[in-house]
Amino acid sequence: MSNPATASPTKALKDWPLWEVFVRSKQGLEHKHCGSLHASDPEHALQMARDIYTRRQEGVSIWVVPSKAIVANSPDDKAELFDPSGDKIYRHPTFYDIPDDVGHM
């Protein structure tokens, strides 16, 4: 086991994992991604998120998630994933002509 006291000067920093921060700005709204930070453990990450992202009452609730736990698609898959919905314009309400007499629908 390595002794922290003898570790290289910036080792501790390197060991701190990256966390993604999500903040709910007010009750009733969703948590929204607002940035990332390094912290040693979940509690530490929450503390840091509070100091870095909510100094002006920007939030009523914070989530922190280890960045490595996030699964993302590769940018190369963009066409394969998202293009198929491009020609399905009938999924939008504006596709349908409704007589003006009907009023709001």
Binding site: P4, A5, A7, P9, A12, L13, D15, W16, A39, S40, D41, H44
Partner: peptide
């Protein structure tokens, strides 16, 4: 930065112990 080293070390040690 140097003076804060022990704080960073302590946080890492705490995290390791919790884990």
């Amino acid at each position: 930065h140097t003076d804060g080293q022990w704080v960073r070390d302590a946080a890492s040690a705490h995290a390791a112990k919790q884990q």
